[in-house]
Amino acid sequence: MTLPGHVTRLLCLLTLAYVWSVLVGIDQETVLKTHGRRAWSVVTLGLRSLVRASSRQVGASVDELLHLIRLWMPHQTTGAESVGY
Rank of each mutant, 00 (worst) to 15 (best):
W20F: 05
S61I: 00
H67W: 09
S82L: 07
T8S: 15
P4D: 11
H75N: 10
L50P: 13
S41I: 02
L13W: 10
V31E: 15
P74D: 00
L16D: 04
V22M: 10
L45F: 02
T15Q: 10
R38F: 05
L11M: 10
V22S: 07
S41H: 03
H35F: 14
V43K: 04
D27R: 11
H35N: 15
R52P: 08
A39E: 11
L14D: 05
R38M: 02
V22D: 08
M1F: 07
S21F: 00
T34C: 07
V31D: 14
L68A: 04
H35C: 09
M73G: 05
W40T: 06
R70E: 05
T34F: 06
R52W: 15
L68I: 04
S49D: 15
P74F: 05
S55Q: 06
S55E: 14
V42Y: 06
T34K: 10
Q76T: 07
R38I: 00
T2Y: 08
W40R: 12
Y18E: 01
Q57D: 14
R52K: 14
L45M: 14
G84S: 00
S49Q: 15
Y85D: 06
G25I: 00
H75I: 05
A60W: 04
G59N: 07
G5V: 13
S41N: 02
W20E: 05
L50F: 02
L10R: 10
Q28T: 12
T77D: 14
L23D: 06
V43W: 12
G25E: 04
T30E: 11
V62I: 04
S21Q: 02
L23Q: 09
V42T: 07
S55D: 12
L32H: 10
